[in-house]
Design a protein around this nucleic acid. Structure first.
Lengths: 272, 272
DNA sequence: TCAATAGTGTCTATTAGACAGTATTTT
DNA sequence: AAAATACTGTCTAATAGACACTATTGA
């Protein structure tokens, strides 16, 4: 760094600009009782107190091991928010997939000030009931079907849990990303236990996509994709709930992308 | 809004938090002389003065038609930055595709302060040589091949145009997004003139993907995807540069997504 | 015993890709 | 005339999806 640059930085005043805040919001998805659920917190403080929202908060400065103040990376902040709001420890987060979704910065989306929110998408296996974090009055897994989302990100009138800010838009985007990711990545396995059966994996696809799949063709297809799943050599304890043989158990394979992909059956409408 | 919420907002002090800035950076891609080019500006002021960077800047408050101050949406800010740095007027921007790429917020990525940058990706047809905007010493279309990008987003030593901040990472992400988008969307046509031939469209794919495609199979495949292109009934003025018949001219069709998709031939390596 | 389910076999339509062939243009 | 190129035809392998069938389990 040259002399001129040093002088510039010494004279730079970060507070000379309009204040903007950067927040993180997490769309955390899991499957409970055969339905797709999203983690919601009930706001315990203004603004929009009492409404439901995606877990999140402002990006902070954290202290590292030596106690020094250190700003937080975005991914790091998202993992922290998720851990705080779900009450899971960091080691349990290892089995959670977390990726950036998008940034939202429409003027007026937060009444306090200009807030740009970086949204994250999380895929989690079955998790314990969350405990409410610091700013939240309550935290629960909520079936997304109960939120009355329309295709455009609005909520149908009469829905009991109204989402704060533009969170219904963020959730809608997250759901579409999740549905799309199941097509060409192996991420469906992150919704499953460490060992799972092909029918369980199929249930993940059916739940996220919201449509039934042909059991026989799905089975053959999953096994034909190199690296998607890996046999454990064992079988499940029980057969299907209403009968049927015990299914073989599999582990996630080493493939990140699926080739060929598993495409959703009914996408004809949304092509144009 | 209830009483309590009003009181809260009146007492809220946005400057009580650590200052953060939100910037926009644009990865603007076009094809010139058969090579993929990205728009770069040479920084005319510290920090990193003299280095090359993606066009961008801080999100501002703008004045609307009535002269009232109004904060800017992110998409709006990206379009403004692109227009300012390329010197194209808003109407020419209509033929440019602009989409959000990702947010970048690693601590220390900007020496001035905490900066979270929302990156955008733009696909443009052939455009005039840009004129340098306000903060830039120069602005040029640069072949991406000349930037010595490695797979991880670093630049090879000895590259003449070094990119400022983490812009080589952003550019690498933008290139991968562009390559991927050509597979399943009809966006390749946004690199072309309003009327184009199938061989011209093939050149777009070959340039962005960096590999040669089979002319005959590509031709048949493009015509087989419903809504990808639409015949104009006319033919080009000239044949191929070194001989061959005149090609028929097409317009972009009404499809947004390609079904079936045009997949890159050589993705075997990156699957795991 | 009956119904449901796991897993496999088979058939057909669609698609990807290799290769060949013809007509048309530039040099 | 020669070379390049636009486009079309044809063949093969891979894939998607429908349907059928057997074996095994729970109720």
């Amino acid at each position: 760094m040259d002399r001129r640059e040093e002088e510039f930085l010494a004279a730079y005043d970060p507070r000379a600009y309009d204040p903007v805040a950067v927040a993180i919001d997490v769309v955390a998805l899991t499957i409970r009782d055969g339905a797709l659920n999203v983690l919601l917190v009930q706001r315990g403080a203004p603004p929009q107190e009492g409404m439901w929202a995606l877990p999140g908060g402002f990006v902070k400065n954290t202290r590292d091991e030596t106690g020094a103040v250190r700003p937080e990376g975005l991914d790091e902040a998202a993992a922290r928010e998720l851990a705080e709001e779900t009450g899971v420890r960091a080691d349990a987060l290892e089995r959670v997939h977390l990726e950036q979704l998008a940034a939202y910065g429409a003027p007026g989306r937060d009444p306090r000030m200009r807030v740009v929110s970086v949204a994250y998408l999380a895929f989690a296996p079955e998790m314990p009931e969350p405990r409410a974090g610091s700013d939240a009055a309550d935290a629960v897994w909520t079936p997304v079907g109960s939120l009355g989302l329309t295709g455009t990100g609005a909520q149908r009138p009469g829905t009991t849990r109204r989402l704060a800010f533009d969170h219904s838009v963020i959730l809608t985007d997250g759901l579409e990303r999740a549905r799309s990711k199941l097509e060409y990545t192996a991420l469906a396995t992150t919704f499953c236990a460490p060992e799972f059966t092909i029918p369980e994996l199929r249930a993940v696809y059916e739940t996220v996509w919201g449509e039934e799949l042909h059991a026989g063709n799905f089975h053959r297809k999953v096994l034909s994709v190199p690296g998607f799943v890996e046999s454990t050599g064992t079988t499940s304890e029980r057969g299907g709930r209403r009968g049927g043989p015990r299914a073989r158990l599999y582990r996630p394979g080493d493939a990140r992308l699926l080739h060929p992909a598993l495409l959703r059956p009914s996408r004809e409408e949304e092509i144009r």
